[in-house]
Computed example of a mutant assay.
Amino acid sequence: MLLKICLLLFSVTTIATKDAASETVGPIFIFGDSILDVGTNNYVKNCKAQVNRPYYGVDYPHSIATGRFSNGLNPADTIVALLGGYEESPPPFLALLAHSSNLTRDLLHGVNFASGGAALVKGIGKQVLGDVISLEEQIQQFATVQGNITTLLGESKGQLLIQGSMYIICVGSNDIMNYVFTHPTTLEVFIANITAIYAIHLKNLYDLGARKFGLMSIPPIGCCPIARAFSGGECAKELNDVVSAFYTPLESLLKNLSSTLEGFKYSLGNSYNMSMSVIENPPPGFKDVKTACCGNNPLAGIDDCKAQRYLCPKRDDHLFWDAFHPSEAASKLAARVLVFGEDPDFVTPINFSTLRKA
């Protein structure tokens, strides 16, 4: 497969080099879990975390269920659109391999590696979700892309493109849910372990040339509809406490990396604070910040989101689309805060737009 990719790249070197030279900044590469997945899992055999079915995508153009865990666009789409140069997220890596006629041009304009169910620790959730692409494997896929870009453009130009690119990451929710349900160790040891693993992943990306990291911290997953369903309608405190415990070590890790790794720059979005601010003080337009738009069943709790199940008539009224994930309206709101926000309680030390231009 790698040889096939290289041959395709060499066959269109002139066109691709021209495209890359016209970019004012590098492309965007996206990693993480279902919050940012735009269809990766459609191409993964034995994967149970697939949503290429109605009502998913009901508000996407032509009501296509693309594999996004959303009624329409998700945060990967809304963030890159505001950053400029994109109408929606770059395509999934596995989709590019499956439709390789556009592979070269698309590699130079960014790739989305995110996979629903992915975690910091490889293998988390496998018994429930089957096969997904872990963050470790996503970075291995990026290594293939990085190698082909430098082969295509040459070492110097290729590295400039890679270093000028932006790397958006959202992962960790699945690790925390697994911890709360299994309690394999103490909270302190768990937080230390996943922080150390996150550091390894970030350093591996850095060694491949990444320099500009836009991270989204873990949202208050204890307040998602499925968690509320098991907590009498209230937010699940234990889940949220673990999420809160991870934020400060993550921020400290990023500060340390920025001071020890030359050229390492970052923006950290505090998804917990952002989400809780909406839940506690809903802005105009959000009339329901507790229940799922799709699959909500007041009598029986949470149903799967699929055709013939409950679908709310006004999706933009809801913070949550399904049992776990934000609505398109919520994704657009979050993107505006991440990209342009100035409040350090929501994004620090700079916003995504400033990082993009750095």
Rank of each mutant, 00 (worst) to 15 (best):
S63F: 01
P75N: 02
D59A: 05
H62P: 01
D33C: 05
Y86T: 11
Y43N: 12
N74E: 08
I64D: 10
Y56V: 04
P61T: 06
S101F: 07
N52Q: 13
E88P: 01
R53P: 10
Y60D: 14
S34F: 04
N71K: 02
G84I: 05
L83W: 04
P90L: 00
H99N: 15
L73T: 12
N41G: 10
N52Y: 03
A95C: 11
L94G: 11
V58Q: 11
S89M: 05
N46L: 09
E88H: 09
A49M: 10
Y86W: 07
P91Q: 01
R68Y: 08
K48H: 13
D37E: 09
P75H: 00
G85T: 09
I64H: 11
E87N: 14
T104M: 03
Q50T: 15
K48A: 13
I79T: 14
P92A: 03
T66M: 09
F93S: 05
Q50E: 13
D37W: 01
C47R: 02
P92W: 00
D77C: 06
S89L: 03
L97F: 05
G84V: 06
I79D: 13
S70V: 07
T104P: 15
P90M: 00
G39R: 01
P90Y: 01
A76W: 05
P90S: 01
N46W: 04
P54C: 00
S89A: 15
S89N: 09
I35C: 05
P54Q: 01
T40M: 05
A95R: 10
S101V: 13
K48V: 07
H99V: 08
S101C: 09
G72C: 05
K45W: 02
N71P: 15
I35L: 15
L82K: 14
P61Q: 08
L36Q: 07
P92G: 02
E87M: 06
L82M: 11
A49D: 13
H62M: 07
P75Y: 00
Y43S: 09
L96E: 15
N102L: 07
F69S: 07
N74W: 03
T40A: 03
L83Q: 08
N52V: 04
L83N: 08
S34G: 15
T78M: 06
N71E: 09
T104L: 01
A98Y: 12
N41A: 07
G39I: 02
A95F: 13
E88M: 06
A76Y: 05
R53T: 13
P91T: 01
Y56P: 14
K45N: 14
L103M: 13
A81H: 14
D77R: 04
R53C: 12
N102R: 09
T104D: 08
G39H: 04
L73W: 09
S34M: 04
N74Q: 07
A81W: 05
S100A: 14
L103D: 13
Y56H: 07
P75I: 01
Y55I: 13
V51N: 09
L94D: 14
G85Y: 03
H99K: 12
N74I: 07
A49V: 08
P92F: 00
G85I: 04
N42I: 05
T78S: 13
Y43W: 15
E88V: 06
G67F: 02
V58N: 12
R68H: 11
H62Q: 12
K45V: 09
P91C: 00
V80N: 05
A98F: 06
G67I: 04
V80K: 00
H99T: 14
H62N: 15
P61D: 08
V80L: 03
G84Q: 04
D77P: 12
F93K: 02
